[in-house]
Design a protein around this nucleic acid. Structure first.
Lengths: 374, 374
DNA sequence: CGGGCCGTGTTGATCGTTCAAAACGGAACG
DNA sequence: CGTTCCGTTTTGAACGATCAACACGGCCCG
């Protein structure tokens, strides 16, 4: 057994600390390569005692199949690309970073992994084409889908598997996406505020035209309708800028009566409200209820009640739709939950307390980082 | 040429839209496989006219080498693992997410790519071992190194290539890391505040014992020494919690005179100062100077001056150290810059203005997100 | 009792590329 | 004119796994 000896020697010697291959396991277990392969991939086709013997040797030799070899032979990478965006990553909040983390966490349970890539902003499609053509990935997970997004049509045309976190707005016939129901989230917020006893509930959102923003605003007006509010309630608009948001919030507060509350399309807008409230010597929560959206770290830091997106669940759903195209092909709309903090609680002494809505949840201690992280 | 015909037919037919291989290019250019391979990997070993012909065919057929096949034959993945942490990702700020993005952006220029993985928190090393054993990666990029971190010793013992973003505290002999000079950053902050005219400069930091925090605090005391302050200046401590930070800041403000400023070990601590300042009816910047650390999105939103880490440069440096072990083996300590905003400017009318320190930079408009991002 | 079938295991071919070595043709040289 | 050498190109083998097909023995069945 020259091969055997040289291998064994090689493993012990300093020269070649090479990993064991399937052949090493086969020889050790006294079977052929294919049987080892079957033991891992089709255990039911292997006799029980043989199976046990092979698995024992696999364990003993710490054998792990070489992914590249598998990819080559199977003609499948079992990997998916995820675009990370070099620009715009200083946005408030990091839902997408969180989504990437959760995708990564769920990857092993689908025998897959995630490859990050950063396409050239001037030709995004080229980045996708290149990543795909190299055989590095089988498909993609899209996020941050926009109006007139070039990616979904191209992927569809190329028959490339993909899912999207966020509705694919331009292609209604495309159902392979998972999103968070912003409308429902804002509705919860309105109900919660009404229950907490605020007399009037205003809206601070983005200028109309953005699909996400319009959807959230609809949740607010539907919530008011549900409460029996008939006339038009006060609203204000601001783009994603704290100073503008503060000004808009101030105007909104002028038009709201005492004991009012404001629901916002984002945590940053809510931050503007907090600031405007404090500017006139009032206390968020006690005097004016405020609810944000996204439950970012800023919300946690500022004791801001906010609509929380179930990102981990979204990631799991995305994997399901991606790797098993037969099940759950349809769109999935996840219900967000409300993380209640001091900004929507009127009694100042009591700590943050959850509403009675089934989906409302209390801010848990581990929402805040436990230790010091620089 | 049966092979040729079937291939051509396969490409046109709906059945097999398979990617072109190196053999297709070879046949089209009238050379052998190896020559095509050489044209891409050793162009100098190919006759000029042949080279041109081959490259033209590569372009025409849109040939891209199959990464898995390369990895298998080269016995090298040209990929590196990056651990993403499922817990604790709700920390304030997202320096590490940003670092991941910048790593991804720089990856292609080193003919490499990044694979995200999430090890089991109960056995982190197992996750590293598994990822490595599968041949998916050649090494790792570490981040968030801690005291008593098990990863560096293990990687060293296994002779696995790695670099670290953040000093490897326990192994002084290990030099393969890049970090941001917190000491220098705080020093800049102190100089900037002194120049802006604040009479006294206090420190709000974490409890002593954390290497990062102690390093930053040292920058503050060295800065005061440089200014000729001899006695002990006021300091306070708080863990990473906004309420605690606010209380600590209030105590600190009691001990500081008028026209004072506070330098903080983190943006969250600085947020506490902002709050404490406003609680007593004062205005950050005009009445009390405040500087944070990390230049997170919160800092931008709250108009907080903060020490900015050159994350992109850190990522590039990390790649250099990782893939080319001959050059720059030593540790690299990068100089942060100061992003000046309203919280450290005394005249209320004037917009944020940079100090005269060469590394101080003004907050650029694109620090804030341009559009609406939900 | 011959043929088909089933459970189990083996062998040859293959995925697409690069390494190692050999082949080829022409120029330089003794 | 034979030999050596060099630049260029080609051929065989290998990386480590899986697919496809087949071999083998035992069992059932007509």
């Amino acid at each position: 057994m020259t091969t055997d000896e040289s291998r064994e020697a090689g493993r012990d010697a300093v020269a070649t600390p090479s990993r064991p291959t399937i052949v090493d396991v086969a020889e050790a277990a006294g079977v052929s390569r294919q049987t080892v392969s079957n033991a891992l991939n089709r255990p039911h086709k292997v006799a029980p005692d043989t199976l046990e013997r092979v698995l024992r040797e696999i364990e003993r030799l710490r054998f792990t199949p070489h992914v590249s070899a598998q990819q080559l032979r199977r003609r499948r990478a079992s990997a998916y690309g995820f675009e990370v965006n070099p620009s715009g990553h200083r946005r408030l909040g990091h839902i997408l970073d969180e989504f990437l983390v959760e995708l990564t966490v769920s990857a092993p349970s689908h025998a897959s992994h995630l490859v990050a890539f950063a396409p050239d902003p001037d030709d995004v499609i080229a980045g996708y084409r290149q990543t795909l053509a190299s055989g590095l990935v089988d498909g993609f997970v899209l996020a941050d889908t926009r109006h007139a997004d070039p990616r979904p049509p191209w992927l569809l045309e190329q028959h490339v598997p993909f899912v999207s976190f966020g509705r694919v707005w331009d292609l209604p016939e495309l159902t392979r996406w998972v999103d968070v129901d912003g409308h429902a989230g804002v509705l919860q917020a309105v109900r919660h505020l009404a229950e907490a006893g605020y007399a009037q509930i205003g809206w601070l959102g983005w200028p109309t035209g953005s699909p996400v923003g319009d959807n959230r605003r609809q949740g607010w007006s539907d919530g008011l309708a549900e409460l029996g509010v008939t006339g038009d309630a006060p609203t204000a608009e601001a783009v994603q800028d704290l100073d503008e948001a503060t000004d808009a919030a101030a105007r909104l507060l002028d038009r709201l009566g005492p004991d009012s509350a404001v629901v916002c399309a984002s945590d940053l807008l809510a931050l503007g409200v907090l600031r405007a409230v404090r500017n006139r010597g009032l206390e968020p929560g006690r005097d004016v209820g405020v609810v944000g959206f996204d439950d970012t770290d800023v919300a946690a830091a500022m004791q801001l009640t906010s609509v929380h997106q179930p990102v981990a669940e979204a990631a799991r759903t995305a994997w399901d739709m991606l790797v098993d195209p037969t099940t759950s092909p349809g769109p999935v709309l996840l219900e967000p939950s409300l993380t209640v903090r001091a900004s929507s609680v009127r009694e100042p002494a009591a700590p943050a307390r959850a509403g009675t809505r089934p989906t409302a949840k209390q801010a848990r201690p581990d929402d805040e980082p436990p230790g010091i992280r620089p």
